[in-house]
Amino acid sequence: MFHAPLPEASVQLYTLAGQFSQDPRGSLEKLAALGLRNVEAFDFVRRPAEIRQALDAAGLSSPTGHAPLLSDELWTPDGSIPAPSPEKVFEAAATVGIGTVIDPFVPVSRWLTADGVADIAERLNRASEVAAGFGLAVGYHNHAQEFLADFNGTSAFEHFVSLVDEKVELELDLYWAATGGQDVPALVSRLGDRLAAVHVKDGVVPPGNPFAPEAPAFSSRSLDQRHAGHGDVPLVEALAAGAGNIRYAVIEYDNPPGDVFADVAASLAFLFENGLAR
């Protein structure tokens, strides 16, 4: 479909969080058997050597990975804990073989004011400088809260993009951008070569923004997510709009609809059969 180089297919391991935690090597071997060569690691900071060993055994690479860079504390079921230092994150990333460390989530309240957005951008710019000392890059991954506020007609997300250094990579979650009310192919086009990766995710886009302060308490279990090409997200058009810029097309489900490996296989087949990734 594209004349420009195709993005490489990948999968965010959060999709199979339970299976991966119980059996890292076996889970990765199942992904490799589907035809994947790449994954996107998460929760790698506390066990980088184990994850690297499992990746090597399965013949997989993790060119990108998710880890906190922009929050001082992390929520866990046992309460908040201090976030690891950027240096610790980057040391772990280097062990795993990750080239770009992507912050996956910044709370809603910090996206609602210009000062909050400026602080996020400043922190990520500083993290980028530290990462460079490890030979790494940093990036940001959106949900829908980045599209709640706008400043002079520009969404908080695109205002953030204007403030971060061009070395900072962007990973656009196509489903969450649609949930945030965006014309997704148009947004991809505007981001241009700032966009390094996308999350390929589909399903029924919920009415209203579930991250809005007035919205009911949100759980990913409430999402009606479906195999790529079977929901509301214009994936083909979005990937076409990013042709030549997107390096990784990362499959993800926040709420897998069935057997998770079959779900990943279905979305991978969608990418391959439509000539959207390699």
Rank of each mutant, 00 (worst) to 15 (best):
P5Q: 10
L6N: 08
P7D: 10
A9D: 03
Q12W: 02
L16D: 00
L16G: 04
A17L: 12
A17W: 03
G18I: 00
G18A: 13
F20P: 02
S21D: 14
D23F: 07
P24R: 13
G26C: 13
S27Q: 09
S27D: 07
L31M: 13
A33H: 04
L34K: 06
G35I: 09
D43S: 14
R46E: 14
R47Y: 00
A49Q: 14
L55E: 09
D56E: 15
A57H: 09
G59T: 09
G59P: 10
S62H: 03
S62A: 15
S62V: 07
T64D: 01
P68L: 01
W75P: 07
P77V: 13
G79L: 06
P84S: 12
K88M: 01
F90D: 10
T95P: 00
I98N: 03
G99P: 01
F105N: 09
F105I: 10
S109H: 14
L112Q: 15
L112E: 10
G116N: 12
A121F: 07
E122P: 00
R123G: 02
R123H: 05
L124N: 04
N125G: 10
E129P: 00
A132C: 07
G135N: 09
G135I: 08
V138E: 06
A144S: 15
A144T: 10
F157D: 03
S162D: 13
V164P: 01
E169W: 01
E169A: 13
L170S: 03
L170V: 12
A177R: 01
A178Q: 12
G180W: 03
P185N: 11
A197V: 05
D202E: 05
D202I: 02
G203A: 06
P213R: 09
A215C: 11
A215M: 08
A217L: 12
S220D: 13
R221I: 10
S222H: 11
L223H: 07
L223M: 14
G231Y: 06
V233W: 07
L235C: 06
V236E: 13
L239N: 04
L239K: 04
A240I: 06
A240L: 14
R247L: 08
Y248H: 13
Y248V: 02
V250T: 14
Y253L: 06
S267I: 00
F272R: 15
F272P: 00
A277G: 08
R278C: 02
